[in-house]
Design a protein around this nucleic acid. Structure first.
Lengths: 216, 216
DNA sequence: TAGATTGTTAATCGATTAACAATC
DNA sequence: TAGATTGTTAATCGATTAACAATC
């Protein structure tokens, strides 16, 4: 396997992309690591180290080619290929996510949303029809769905994940406040509000000093 | 300041709490680090190290007292005191978050939701009335609001944060896909879907191997 | 008692940061 | 040319993991 990029670097990549896009809009052809670092409250040396893992070379005194760099980062993230995803769970969060425009920029195409509640099935949500969960297996097969976004209640999240894995998804993005188990070979990513809030709370409790952030 | 608990440990604390709660429901008085580790796909040694930072002592061969440990973790997170928060931005995500029951368990009380859209103001959202953003300064003062949850569009997120800080909030929880700047002394935490998705995408791209997760 | 589990100190690992030569 | 910035190697820092004695 190709030289793996460290997770902390991966996590900073989307922020770099946002700044690069701004610079591109301004018409900048090159951007220096000091510019990127200032915009993101990072140190230039760290930005340089991160960028080095893309393989892109810069010009001393000038910086890095904006276009080339953002393409390389997009590629490193796999955002230059579209991944088809489904959302499972049409509650508040599932609906909010299905309406999130940003996903397309990240190479994620939300193809459908599912629920098991008869009352919700058939309803329209940001251009998608809520489908019956009993159709999900066929849907995954027929539409080459690789990613399932789980927004069901925590109490049923493990069985939901098990079922989706059995249906063939390769990646699970779990929003339920529960630590799921998935078999070897399936990629699991969680976005846990509790974790995020924990960091915020702990910092507030100590407060004064350390206002530096992080993500999930 | 008291001995700071490492951020990675803080991030694991909510998961421990969930398992401890399950154990408590089962009637367990003590829980071992092997049990916790198995439930969360961690190593016992790491769980022991994490727990050691709470100051709670266990009994060899028996484990740690469930009740006492979960109280200590809640305290370390500052979840034993209620923090009043407001949500700013009544879009899909703001609405979803305002309806999230779980926050109360984390010592977060969502007191109100604000927006600047005349059409939304006055509307009811999960028991809260959407208020006019022009009332936010007084509201923060009168209700001792410490935390603002930002769910406005990225394009106006910085000015929103600036304003809220000026109004006196001590903590900002930012959901907009933008890297905000806040003055020294204000705590900033972001929950960025792009970051989370970046990790998922990168893992999928490499795939095979490394299905271990992380959070935002 | 025997053995599982705790608690602590030391080793390892990996990311961040520093130092500095190379260069447009 | 002078100086800002890159690129690379080494040092530092902090978290994870290993080792092992203590103990219910």
């Amino acid at each position: 396997m190709k030289q793996m990029i460290p997770i902390p670097t991966i996590k900073r990549f989307p922020s770099y992309l946002r700044i690069l896009e701004e610079e591109e809009k301004k018409g900048a052809e090159y951007v220096s690591t000091t510019t990127l670092a200032d915009a993101l409250d990072l140190k230039p040396i760290q930005v340089r180290k991160d960028i080095s893992s893309t393989g892109i070379n810069g010009k001393p005194k000038v910086g890095f080619p904006v276009k080339e760099l953002s393409e390389a980062i997009n590629h490193a993230l796999g955002w230059d290929n579209v991944n088809s995803a489904i959302i499972v769970g049409a509650g508040n969060l599932g609906r909010a996510l299905s309406g999130y425009e940003g996903f397309n920029a990240y190479g994620l195409s939300v193809a459908a949303i599912f629920d098991n509640d008869e009352k919700k099935i058939g309803e329209q949500v940001s251009g998608l029809t809520i489908r019956d969960i009993r159709e999900v297996r066929d849907y995954i097969k027929d539409n080459h769905i690789g990613i399932a976004v789980i927004t069901v209640p925590a109490s049923v999240s493990q069985e939901t994940a098990d079922y989706l894995v059995d249906c063939g998804v390769r990646g699970i993005w779990n929003f339920a406040p529960k630590d799921l188990k998935v078999p070897e070979g399936v990629v699991l990513q969680r976005t846990d509000l509790a974790t995020s809030l924990a960091v915020l709370s702990a910092k507030l409790r100590n407060s004064i000093s350390s206002h530096q952030d992080e993500t999930i």
